[in-house]
Design a protein around this nucleic acid. Structure first.
Lengths: 144, 144
DNA sequence: TGGTTTGTTACCAATCTGGTTACATTGAAG
DNA sequence: CTTCAATGTAACCAGATTGGTAACAAACCA
């Protein structure tokens, strides 16, 4: 699930920068540097979560379904992370000693994850866009 | 690097519980549920970091090199995590747009990781042992 | 000298990950 | 109503990562 969050943030960021007109998975794939299918896999999740809308057929593509100022990075995370957490947990089937220890460690991980999620919740897509977009423009102007 | 931290914590925890006498990698492997080689790989790191001492030959094994109250979970983490971080970063060779975004995300990850490391730093091995050991004993008594 | 244990390398199977191919489905436009 | 453009989805693949195994050298003790 690693890059899914990055892809998801790229999508909502790009759609924000594009104002209202639909963007195709091909465009998103090219700008991110991946394949359209990967984009669409994430796009489907974002769509089911109500963050974006997609339209098939000619002139179709994806658009933001919400105001970018009304959508936090955690919303994107929740849409994209289907159950899996950022920090890999320890598998559960160990017995005795190892199990107790795994429980202890996982508890520490939970705290850390909560902290991260809280941080993601404190940033809106609009704010992210405001930080990222100028840098992207500068990078493009330099020909990167 | 996932399970290395768990293994490392198991090692120092077990050594703490054992008071001072040396414990072999075979014993540590059996109690954790892995192979001696895996244990020794981690043991080597802990040893190089000065957290444990190992002795070869008959009657050898590993012992704590420090007071358990003087050793934090972060010390174990630092010894065990050779450069790799808990949260997988995004690879760096992407160009333009994706690179800027990756930088942004990695920055958020850094904050989260700092939070986790701070938490690990706030717990000593002795404290962990105090929490974990009774649970382990109970689990063993139940025959788990 | 022989047995015990760590240190280290090389290799293997399983899993994860991201990518690709292929195709069905939907929609717009002529 | 046909054609083209786009999403939705499943099946499969190659590379990386992971934890484990086998093998053996090195150290240490009796």
């Amino acid at each position: 699930m690693n890059s899914d969050l990055a892809v998801g943030l790229h999508i909502v960021g790009f759609l924000t920068a594009r104002g209202g007109d639909p963007v195709t998975s091909v465009t998103l794939a090219e700008t991110y540097g991946t394949s359209p299918v990967v984009i669409r896999r994430v796009l489907t999740r974002l769509s089911k979560a109500g963050l974006v809308e997609t339209r098939r057929g000619a002139g179709g593509g994806a658009t933001l379904a919400r105001d970018a100022a009304d959508c936090t990075l955690r919303d994107v995370y929740d849409a994209v992370a289907h159950g899996q957490s950022l920090l890999r947990r320890h598998p559960g089937e160990e017995s005795g000693v190892a199990r107790v220890l795994a429980g202890y460690i996982n508890q520490l991980y939970d705290e850390a994850e909560e902290a991260l999620l809280g941080r993601l919740e404190s940033v809106t897509v609009a704010e992210m866009d405001a930080v990222v977009r100028p840098k992207v423009c500068r990078a493009i102007r330099r020909g990167g």
